[in-house]
Design a protein around this nucleic acid. Sequence first.
DNA 1: TCTGGCTCCGTTAGCGGTAACATACCGTCG
DNA 2: CGACGGTATGTTACCGCTAACGGAGCCAGA
Lengths: 344, 344
Amino acid sequence: MTKATGTDPRRTLTLRDVSEASGVSEMTVSRVLRNRGDVSATTRERVLQAARTLGYVPNKIAGALASQRVNLVGVIIPSLSNMVFPEVMTGISTILDNTGLQPVVGVTNYLPAREETVLYEMLSWRPSGVILAGLEHTAPARAMLAQAGIPIVEIMDIDGPVVDSAVGISHRRAGRQMAEAIVASGYRRIAFMGTQMPNDFRAKKRLEGFEEALKRAGMALVDREFYDGGSALLKGREMTAAVLRRTPDVDFLYYSNDMIGAGGLLYCLDKGIDVPGKVGLAGFNGVELLDGLPRRLATMDACRLEIGRRAAQIIAGRNEHPDIGPEVVELFPTLQPGDTIRQR
Amino acid sequence: MTKATGTDPRRTLTLRDVSEASGVSEMTVSRVLRNRGDVSATTRERVLQAARTLGYVPNKIAGALASQRVNLVGVIIPSLSNMVFPEVMTGISTILDNTGLQPVVGVTNYLPAREETVLYEMLSWRPSGVILAGLEHTAPARAMLAQAGIPIVEIMDIDGPVVDSAVGISHRRAGRQMAEAIVASGYRRIAFMGTQMPNDFRAKKRLEGFEEALKRAGMALVDREFYDGGSALLKGREMTAAVLRRTPDVDFLYYSNDMIGAGGLLYCLDKGIDVPGKVGLAGFNGVELLDGLPRRLATMDACRLEIGRRAAQIIAGRNEHPDIGPEVVELFPTLQPGDTIRQR
DNA sequence: TCTGGCTCCGTTAGCGGTAACATACCGTCG
DNA sequence: CGACGGTATGTTACCGCTAACGGAGCCAGA
């Protein structure tokens, strides 16, 4: 920012410039621009006129410092390329748009250390609240959250201890439910495919729940395959090919997300495999993409939009009424059997 | 933020708290925490120790106001659900990560009025630079950009007048190139499918370029179909079905983006249509998704990652050396014929 | 006429940092 | 031994805005 001397026309404008141009005090200008306090209609008009012709843009930095109020909400998510998170963002935005609050996104790439850094950066802007994905954080991050003195909402997951508020689903239960549905449909030789990522705790919990339910039914996974990086759709194809080759008598393929599931589905259809007769498939998430596939993949909706909305509501509510306490909201995903689990 | 009286342990900490805890002046603490100026190793250690145990998080609002420096870069994009933009974001992040600058995202939903609002909000935080998609802005937005006195980079498109700097491709040329390739492969009855969105100027320019090249070859589109909203993959199927029904002798389907193109491809394969023999297909963008499809859709890479990188480089460079002037960078997308244009 | 209560607007004192300058302390060298 | 330069720290004056309060002007009612 060029800081200029004297009458440089490109010097950044301040309230004082507007106040001089309109012949009132800075305070009155401030009041007009914030619609706060009583100002006569004529003065208001004169000030607005001056501000417009000058092209004045208020300095929120100074405003925030003086008022101790920052209309930002930090949102910390693992990734933007997952589609899941943009959708959560949409949910958050729809609510925040009516509140004067504004989301600011930070991305961690599933790295806890990065989450810590991003959180630190965000908190240093003194936001009105923080929404962050997951329950697993580094110890310093946890300490910062506890100290921050602002509403914190952990989203997506509720299987674990919560710092303050939380909105999410039980991934463990989701995995269990899917396993139960699969077993109930008569499938017996079940394989799993998913991401390698050690820090995708939610995928891990789903798998745990899944295996737990299998065990309870006296069964276990007959094969498993992991990937990391690359085009999920392609990886889904490749992993499916690998599993079918290695374990030809497999009769169900459970994918940790819909994208690789879709790849697997396309592969099976390519190969002329009878789906869901010979092999059943299921994914997780209910991504929009699935609607366009030749067959609807069985999946579970992760309530992403609703999670975003509820989280934003908690922040907005506690911002208005600071005496509201923390809250933990569990949402319940619905199983959508689609066309890739046989009905009995 | 709870503002507290007296010795409330949850009062937000300030430099003063750290300075008292470590027995030095606030200024010294400030120096330590910013790694600036000379501080003896012992004091430094003592200060850091105090800051850590207190859990002090600096207040960037105050810092920014005092130093007239804000390490934020505003990034304004039309949408997060397009995949194109997350990828641009990735490009931006990789560069900014090494500079101490931090991206802040704003989303416009392809609404010019919303872009204006978002821009105003961003500028009111006095960022070090702004990156925004497209060359089309409202008059007030354009005025704000011109006034801001910070580096501005318009990205994605270079077909038009630039406010300051720009990095992008010529969508008109891209459309033209694709048309030429299609015509050269012997296709003659070509249909177009794309979004309805009146504010997706880049898609519009591609179509213009496309039609222009057709015209030059003595041809014209034989059919066209638009959609808006919904699952792009599904819409691609539906539109393709509609076009094939309405214009059975069509021999090429040009899609404004790869997602609907993929839907169209899946539809054609479902129906057993000979691709690319009887009908050829092409999209635009080169999304990762395509790698997993049964056949590779012809497309053009829009250089998204590189656009993000170059834009960020411009901001970072001009931030370091304010005397560097504006710059317009044209990138050249490459046509990837894939398997859906017949080779001759 | 005076009081009280409005409406409208100005003054003052920060918010929590940092730039720029001042200062204390030390060793070195002419 | 005093002037000098470098290092390590403190002091002062803001940055641009807003909370809180104060005061002028005006009208109604006693």
